[in-house]
Design a protein around this nucleic acid. Sequence first.
DNA 1: CTCGCTTATTCCTAACAGGAACATTAGTCT
DNA 2: AGACTAATGTTCCTGTTAGGAATAAGCGAG
Lengths: 181, 181
Amino acid sequence: MGQELPVTSFALLGLLSFGEPLTGYELKQRADKTLRFYWVSPAMSQVYTELDRLNGHGLIRPVGDGRATAYSLTDAGRTALDTWLSTTPIGFPVLKHPVALRLLLGALMDPESVRRLLLDHLDALEEEHAALEEVRTSLQGADAPDQLFRYPSLVADWGLSYFEHEKTIIEDLLRRIEDGS
Amino acid sequence: MGQELPVTSFALLGLLSFGEPLTGYELKQRADKTLRFYWVSPAMSQVYTELDRLNGHGLIRPVGDGRATAYSLTDAGRTALDTWLSTTPIGFPVLKHPVALRLLLGALMDPESVRRLLLDHLDALEEEHAALEEVRTSLQGADAPDQLFRYPSLVADWGLSYFEHEKTIIEDLLRRIEDGS
DNA sequence: CTCGCTTATTCCTAACAGGAACATTAGTCT
DNA sequence: AGACTAATGTTCCTGTTAGGAATAAGCGAG
């Protein structure tokens, strides 16, 4: 024990904890689809690097059926995940927000660009909201308490609410910028 | 032109765009105080590395008064920042949310731990909200339209609203978890 | 049967975090 | 004044991560 793995390792272990063995490629897809809303979706290269390491630590095991190597959690992996969940200190969220960063420098732009910046962001929000909503509806039917996707559903709802609120903030900012309040 | 610098470079240029020449140490402090809410606060080492590079590109210039080397924007730096603001495609925000990541795996924890996870996050939110509020009030008096800190103030308000909303989401999740809805 | 897309994996480079190590200056206590 | 401590200021090293290019096998449609 005492492995000191980065968080990304546990994110992948977490994806594997839902049962199905997955290949690196599939893991990347899952990450792109769901994990990316709450955590970064690791790069392809990163996924395979992690898999090698996790395998080296005996936390996952290749289940060899076809040409593609799918991995599943070992008992040690499940234990490592449990320990991580219960003992590792939790940091505060980190947000990399390109729009906020630019708005901070709004004084350097002409008003029209600022306006467009925010309007474009509204569009992007709409799109991401739709993508997450699709994920959310795909969980319907397994989202009741004690069902497999209970917690993923809760997190998805959280994300949806987050997007919706950000929309109202942006609209508010647009209003304030227009009538200089 | 055509320098292709990472976003962090422009974040630092942005901090310098408010007028005052700053040392690496001071830049790191500013970043810790404000930038960290909307973007990552780069590591000390990163700040100095960036400064070297920006200096090499002629975008900043050391203003040599004392033993500490403070840097200020050059005309080229200002131009580079303007170009970046007006032409570079804007990505969607990236969120690394340790609490959401753990909640996703809530099924692996006992209910008590999940509860504690969320309650602890409420405390952390409270703390960060207070820190940002302090920043916000320090901008009072220079936050009217056409004043220097107009846009930083708008962004701070955005951040405050974000924290407040997250608080209500967490409270809602706690409620849902308790009475299994 | 071949063209193009999806699946699957590897490699290389640069970006970035984090912390240790190190100096110098400034302030405080006695 | 001397000593101790905290804040300022900078550099270096190591490991983590992002991103994209390169590659190859399988699979479906024409």
